[in-house]
Write a protein that binds this DNA or RNA. Sequence first.
DNA 1: CGCAAGAATTAACATATGTTAGGGTTTGTG
DNA 2: CACAAACCCTAACATATGTTAATTCTTGCG
Lengths: 246, 246
Amino acid sequence: MTEDSYPRTRRFLQGRSRDALDVRERSLLESLVDEVQQFTSPHTILKRGDVQDRSTILIEGTVARVIHEGGKRHIVALHVPGDFVDLHAFTLKRLDHDVVSMGAVRVGYVTHDALTRVLETEPNLSKMLWYSTLLDAAMHREWIMKMEHLSAHGRLAHLMAELWQRLTFVDLAGESGFALPLTQQELADSCGTTSIHMNRVVRKLRETGVVDISRGQVTILDFDELKRVGAFDAAYLYGEGPLKLI
Amino acid sequence: MTEDSYPRTRRFLQGRSRDALDVRERSLLESLVDEVQQFTSPHTILKRGDVQDRSTILIEGTVARVIHEGGKRHIVALHVPGDFVDLHAFTLKRLDHDVVSMGAVRVGYVTHDALTRVLETEPNLSKMLWYSTLLDAAMHREWIMKMEHLSAHGRLAHLMAELWQRLTFVDLAGESGFALPLTQQELADSCGTTSIHMNRVVRKLRETGVVDISRGQVTILDFDELKRVGAFDAAYLYGEGPLKLI
DNA sequence: CGCAAGAATTAACATATGTTAGGGTTTGTG
DNA sequence: CACAAACCCTAACATATGTTAATTCTTGCG
């Protein structure tokens, strides 16, 4: 597959299941994207309660799924390119959370009518769409585990390890790190803590030579230690073959 | 629908989508259950890493999805009758967590071959199976939010409110409470805290007249207060029509 | 270049929760 | 009924994290 093949959907399930889709299905999926949109400033792409007639695939950038509660913002999932961010709304009808861009993003849209036709005529592609929502659920479970089990220190380490692995799947991780347009406040919202405490944690992980997070750039300093502190085991990400990072 | 109709699967999606399945589809689903099994003592029904050729629907009792990490047991989901507990394994192939019975349970099995045939010939039933896994994911997200946002006090209140609502969906809640075969240790494992602290929290919720949890029986004393303490809003459960408990 | 807004950082103090230790109570079973 | 094994409960102390309040550092923009 060249860099130009399937420019909007080629990262869908990339790194997860090499043979999930054949050429015809890949090409069909690509053709389903009937509009592409760009957002630069932080933007709420979808709002809780919205009833959509199309779903959104992330092409470029980072988006968060956000639940507002008690005047606070809680990030319950982060997405990387290739992820459908609201495929579940196809079946659930309305969203139970907001979808917010973190920095500049580019997204594509697939109508629910098109998805209905897929469900009626493309059992394998249907199964792979289902599969992608189950990967989200597996990540959700891991996040529950980490919230139950880990201190803020471990939660941040786990998050960095997960993002590095997921960006590696889709060929967007660098040699020793990756770009991440999240402020310390947003990292705090992703780890269920405050920005003040997140600042302590970021500093400590930097000082102890585990990972450096600054100015939107994450540098992995000691991946073994990062995995240990974050109790990270990539099995729940269902990567194909032997995982690079294990 | 009489009490005897579809004895193994009639609680599937009950309370969620009244018209999700027509009579033919209901009957087809019922016929897919090719074996029923009972467990009395606490039992690990499915193990992490298992590759199954069938999925499991809970007919009676309570089961937990468990992730073991750092020598501790973390409950990341609880299931009530009508729930498929490992439908995701049909597509993900292997389980990322254990499935454990809490007290006595009865489960039914549906082979993956049968599910593949459903996917090929029954688009609506397929969509409803998908839907049920998306309900799980929505609950996962709510759990992440509650772990990020709430104290142990609020987490327990939220859990009790959620279970009461879900058992109400499937007609298994009593007038003012429900049976729950979980020890304080297991409640602690569901809330990400210790049994010592869970004991403090259980006592406080009892003393303040919110909810009484003792000897496997939960009695709701003040549901408005329970919802407030647990920041509970049932929207994420996608119940049909106006929810009884709201 | 200079300003304003947001972001990062630090300090001091309050509190929820974890840890360790132990005693009491219930429940199932021979 | 007696016993063991869970389970429930409590206390004392240590620590991670929240809260409030400032100060400095970046960054974007006129």
